[in-house]
Computed example of a mutant assay.
Amino acid sequence: MAAATADVGNAVNDCFSIGSTVICTTCFKEEVEGEVLAFDHNTKMLILQCHSKTSGELSDVYVMNLSLCSNVQVIKECNGNFVDDPQKLNLDQVKMRLRKTVERRQDYLKSKNADVTPEAQELYRAIAKQLGYNEVSWQGANIQVLNEVTVSPPYRVDNVVSSSDNDKSCTYIKRIINQFFTTRPSAAQENAHGASSSSASVSPTSSSLSSSNAASGSPVPAN
């Protein structure tokens, strides 16, 4: 173990050349071999481009923490001739993706309400998807839409009320609610699906029991 640690220490003291081929073993005992895309000496982070395990036309990119790796070896030095220059990281695109991911997570958290059912939270998200999360909010157990329409439990079309008698908004929201409950599986269907799955899982056990009794010559109990 001490020798492996020393090898890693010696390896990370040197800078890896972009384009060189490096192989190392992760802390999960997995060997990773690939071409060096970048290396940060301070954090000991090495980025490798490897052949994809699923497609011959694509590449997998690994970010390796060399502090947690062993047997780090350079098996092929770069000759300095690149076929293509390494692609620059588009930081603006990365920031945009990060911002959108955070926004989606924040929007999802807005739909959570411990005082209502999961079905009501799904309906909240369905309405917000059409009108925008900034236009929908919880008022206790009621769904407030556009600051003028309230959807109260049990959240059917008959429970839609407008404080400003805006028939156009009410009609549109009722249409969303109607579509939500029309396309969503009913509780009876979900229970039936669960019961059929349960029966299917029991059947092989019953069959194996009968086969076992028959093979051993034991009588099978009558129902």
Rank of each mutant, 00 (worst) to 15 (best):
L131F: 12
G194W: 13
V145N: 07
A188L: 11
E148H: 06
N178R: 12
Q189R: 08
K174G: 10
P154R: 04
T182I: 10
I127K: 06
S152I: 01
Q179N: 14
Q121C: 12
N113R: 07
Q189K: 08
R125P: 00
E122G: 14
F181T: 13
D158W: 04
N191P: 00
S163E: 01
I127G: 09
Q144K: 10
Q139T: 03
N134Q: 08
F181Y: 15
S198P: 00
N159F: 08
K129V: 00
E148I: 06
T117L: 07
L123A: 13
S186G: 07
D167L: 13
N142I: 04
N147Y: 06
T117H: 05
F180M: 09
S137I: 02
V161Q: 12
V145H: 08
V136A: 00
P153D: 06
K168E: 12
S196T: 09
S111A: 15
K168Y: 10
N166M: 03
V151M: 06
S137Y: 03
S152N: 01
F180Y: 15
N147L: 02
T182F: 15
T183F: 14
V149P: 06
T182S: 14
L146A: 10
S197D: 15
F180T: 13
E148V: 03
P185V: 04
L146T: 04
N159G: 06
T182K: 14
I127F: 07
S196V: 08
A126C: 12
G132M: 00
V116T: 04
R175W: 12
S162E: 07
V161E: 11
V157M: 15
G140V: 07
S199W: 13
A188M: 09
Q179V: 12
D115E: 09
I173E: 11
Q189G: 05
G132K: 11
Q139W: 05
T182R: 15
Q179F: 13
A187G: 08
Y124L: 10
S198E: 15
T183S: 14
I127R: 02
S186I: 02
V157S: 15
S186Q: 02
I173P: 09
L109M: 12
V151T: 04
K110R: 15
E135Y: 02
A141Q: 09
Y172C: 01
N159V: 01
S164A: 06
S197A: 15
A114L: 03
L131T: 01
L131N: 00
A114V: 06
E122I: 00
Y133M: 00
I143N: 05
S199T: 11
V151G: 04
L146Y: 11
I173K: 12
K168A: 11
N166Y: 02
